[in-house]
Design a protein around this nucleic acid. Sequence first.
RNA 1: GGCGCGGUACCCAAGUGGUAAGGGAGAGGUCUGCAAAACCUUUAUGCGUCGGUUCGAUUCCGACCCGCGCCU
Length: 307
Amino acid sequence: MFPDPLLVVVLGPTASGKTALSLALTERFHGEVVNCDSVALYRDFEIGTAKPTASQRARAPHHLLDIADPTDFITAGQYARVARETLAEIKSRNKLPIVVGGTGLYLRALLEGLFPGPQRSEELRERLRDRAERKGGQHLHEILCHLDSDAAAKIHFNDIPKLIRAIEVCLTSRQKMTEMWKRGRDPLTGFRVLRLGLNPNRDALYARINQRAQHMFDAGLVEETKCLLEKYGDAARPLSTLGYKQAVQLLRGEIDSKTAVQGAQQAHRNYAKRQMTWFRREPDVMWLEGFGDDPAIQQRAALAVDG
RNA sequence: GGCGCGGUACCCAAGUGGUAAGGGAGAGGUCUGCAAAACCUUUAUGCGUCGGUUCGAUUCCGACCCGCGCCU
């Protein structure tokens, strides 16, 4: 029997140098990059997402960048399905797939799968959100207690998005969500997974984040945001994310440019911290204590891929 | 030099004669289809300094120090 082919995953907080590391590995091992960053999926969002540039993309095949229209939204389940198809294609070409990204939930959905639950029901969500607004999160929590008390015990009554999903699952499937969980997930098969995690020094990372957020504004983030607003209106979901949110506020005259930059820097730092918390729980990660553009780190990563 | 206002945690800030709200930051955590989202936990024996009054002062009184404003 042949052993399963290798799948490399590069994970880490924002600005830790995932792109640089992935390109180094890609060139050395004839790899192909598969994006695992929720916002980079959307087209026309460039500066604020720190996507690989055109010249970087020319150095190796890149997948799952710019595949969605900014007015619709991708979910973790949809991402996992498309990404698995992409992985299968790469495998059939005998190339090394390198999954690169910072969206922990999407990575988990891809590698470990989600439970076999129903997809979203927009009408139901609309009603629940309406109720939450009128009666508060406790009300939704009480509803969930009746439907699935075990699930309710695990979700805080203020966490409305999770309460809505749990109620949605129970109602549309007519089963308890915790019962469905017991049926397990549908993990990715057919690959040996090597997880490389970038873990640079916290202070150094925050300094780099501050610098990069400033550069985004210098490079025309506000102008890009203006175009996006004109083209898609404020319905474009990624407009409410890191950096774009502040640029929109600036364009509306709600804040000045200094506040916008500082707000974006702060948001990126907070995001990086949340990512680290998530990734610490990720199993079997080979941690690299530094930035992905550091040649020494790239060398260690390459050795791990070789081994 | 005189008068006025103010000095509360890393930052902003409320407050009371009976033992310090809140927000932000920082740190830690949760996460099973919106996740660059949402949510949870946590941080001053201390309220500029030194005295006084009082059973008890961060809160009242006095002096001093620092900052801001005005006046000469």
